[in-house]
Design a binder for these strands. Structure first.
Ligand SMILES: [Mn+2]
Ligand SMILES: [Mn+2]
Ligand SMILES: [Zn+2]
Ligand SMILES: [Zn+2]
Lengths: 137, 137
DNA sequence: TTTGATTTTGCAACATTGTTGCGTTTTTGT
DNA sequence: ACAAAAACGCAACAATGTTGCAAAATCAAA
């Protein structure tokens, strides 16, 4: 399905910005950040417009957001001692309530090992479960 | 282990800001964001200083970062059709290379179901694996 | 208890990311 | 060609995080 038809099938108008975004996704075959798109796109697209293009694509299921690490806006006390220095991975999952926003450690959990492509190596993982806590249920 | 001893055991000096941060973590028993700490802490701590307190605590294994959702800095093309509207969860894991930063979808993967506390309900989950890609290995 | 090296702080300045409002332009079907 | 709807560009703002530097506080040794 080419870019034009894709837009039409979702009732989205054909604009230079949208075509440029789709073209870039077609060329680079990986997840792209807003800034990567901003730089990589041939057209001069306004920064805000680009956000809105991505928003419209997401609402129409053309693309989806991908979590990025180094994002951590929250902190929790470690429940055991750690070596000073290197990132003590704390290999457990976390739960965040959609309503109250509280985030707790699932200390007893263990993030399962996942299969990665040939030649890739795993150093860490991050599992965030979202839903309702007992208070907000 | 009380707050003073904790600081001393890591060679961190005892300051009003650090004690206030530890006190708040002791009172609220959950993960806290920088802004939550900023507001909740009794002492008047400079915003930058608070960042540095958290940094020092993290380096010493006193606390650890917790991933937060609504973070999505990247976007990927959906590999199948989605309904317009509600968050098509795309229940697969993602891999991000530590060196080149490339993020790919592990489309074939499925995020395992995790056990959550009594009364909690799961709506979605987010699994980000980090490591080295074959190009950067 | 004074001193002095070291750590920590506060402040200013800046960068990045994301959002909202609004007037203008572009797209598309008629 | 026309008009309604959609999309855009721009300005302004907010939140989050970073860096440099001078002043202040801490701590241990004298
Ligand atoms: Mn945790
Ligand atoms: Mn994906
Ligand atoms: Zn809740
Ligand atoms: Zn790589």
């Amino acid at each position: 399905m080419n870019a034009e038809a894709l837009l039409k099938s979702h009732g989205l108008r054909k604009t230079a910005g949208r075509l440029a975004v789709l073209a870039l996704f077609a060329k680079r075959e990986k997840a792209l950040s807003h800034s990567e798109l901003q730089e990589g796109v041939t057209e001069n697209v306004d920064r805000v417009t680009l956000y809105r293009i991505l928003e419209s694509f997401e609402q129409n299921g053309i693309l989806h957001k991908v979590p990025d690490d180094q994002v951590s806006v929250k902190y929790a006390l470690c429940d055991h001692d750690h070596e000073v220095g290197e990132a003590h991975s704390d290999n457990h999952a976390h739960f965040k309530c959609r309503v109250c926003g509280d985030t707790i450690c699932l200390d007893d959990s263990e993030i399962p090992t996942m299969q990665v492509p040939e030649g890739y190596s795993v150093e860490g993982s991050l599992l965030l479960i979202s839903g309702l806590c007992s208070k907000c249920a």
